[in-house]
């Protein structure tokens, strides 16, 4: 299956063409193709879905057994050029424990080719950005998990890359830092950069983006916005809640209509409709309201959440 999170006319920043990865007899990723443009995209999958393997292949940490990965048009073969515009935040908590936060961030920037003055300027700015200035001269061995996570994020972003890979970036962060990191990722995406975020925590991804690539059993199962993916699954019902001043009349009308599988009134006096085709239902609803004098003041889609989509697609 091919994933194409690229808007028409937009340049694909990350492309994978029929990539696969075998570990001995086990196939971790099977013939996946995808293209990702600018913005934030979530890579989702349960444990063992192949998400981590695909993510590492896209980030150049492991080589595909077959197929090809390109980032900003370049193949991994040109490693030096490739990583000039790439930032990577690993999931692993390993850091050089003996270094201070400032030393570590400065070294990462120096290895990017920055001179001493620019390194100092950027290290200071990012330490401040992540509120690590007070801990900057402490050894990393004494950092909390959340602080380490912030520093890992800082080293991935401080050189201002065009393409950023974030593997479980919010692990161990407190709620305030988490909110800040989510806002930051969104902001970077809006600047036109490409951010691929891998996570198994669905609400985290949902808070950052609605563009997702969903993996299961080594394959790309679906891609696009959560709503788009949801609409591609006609065999699975969607649940919609309609707020109306006269819920009983509305419910009575909807029973037996085309694409309506079931109707009930919930505790909030909303009419909850199960439809087998959300798009067709949404298309028909205004006509019904207009032609039959029904009153609908608000429409809420109850199961457009990633959790629901994920469960539908993976049948878990």
């Amino acid at each position: 299956m091919s994933a194409g999170l690229v808007v028409a006319g937009q340049e694909a920043r990350i492309t994978a063409l029929r990539v696969g990865k075998w570990f001995g007899e086990v196939i971790a990723v099977n013939n996946c193709s995808l293209s990702v443009g600018s913005g934030v995209v979530g890579l989702l999958g349960a444990n063992g879905a192949g998400k981590s393997t695909l993510f590492k292949m896209l980030a150049g940490l492991i080589e595909p057994s077959h197929g090809e990965v390109r980032v900003l048009g370049a193949r991994l073969r040109d490693r030096v050029g490739w990583y000039r515009n790439v930032g990577f935040c690993p999931e692993s908590d390993a850091l050089p424990e003996w270094m201070t936060g400032r030393e570590y961030l400065s070294l990462m920037l120096r290895l990017m080719g920055l001179d001493r003055a620019e390194t100092t300027r950027r290290a200071d700015a990012w330490l401040e950005r992540f509120e690590l200035v007070d801990a900057a001269n402490r050894r990393l061995g004494g950092y909390s998990k959340g602080m380490r996570q912030k520093l890992k994020l800082a080293q991935a972003l401080a050189h201002d890359p065009e393409v950023i890979f974030l593997d479980e970036p919010l692990n161990g962060m407190d709620p305030v830092s988490r909110k800040g990191a989510i806002d930051l990722v969104g902001e970077i995406g809006r600047q036109g950069k490409t951010v691929l975020v891998s996570s198994h925590i669905l609400p985290e991804i949902e808070a950052m983006t609605d563009q997702i690539i969903l993996m299961d059993r080594g394959r790309v199962l679906a891609e696009g916005s959560v709503a788009e993916i949801r609409d591609k699954i006609p065999e699975h019902p969607t649940t919609v809640a309609l707020v109306s001043p006269d819920p009983r009349a509305l419910a009575a009308f909807l029973i037996g209509r085309e694409h309506v599988e079931g109707v009930r009134i919930d505790d909030d006096q909303r009419v909850v409709v199960r439809t087998d085709h959300a798009v067709a239902f949404y298309r028909a609803l205004p006509g019904w309201v207009r032609d039959h004098g029904l009153a609908v003041t608000e429409i809420l889609t109850l199961d457009d959440s990633l959790e629901a989509v994920f469960q539908y697609l993976t049948e878990r």
Binding site: N85, L111, G113, A125, R129, D160, S177, L184
Partner: peptide, 27 residues
């Protein structure tokens, strides 16, 4: 966390890679 505007100075073109000898030296 602080806001992005405070780190506007970081927006710049990617620097040229380190020469091999310097990279070896730093590592």
């Amino acid at each position: 966390m602080n806001t992005m505007s405070e780190t506007e100075i970081i927006q710049a073109a990617p620097p040229a890679p380190l020469p091999n000898r310097s990279a070896v030296g730093w590592i």
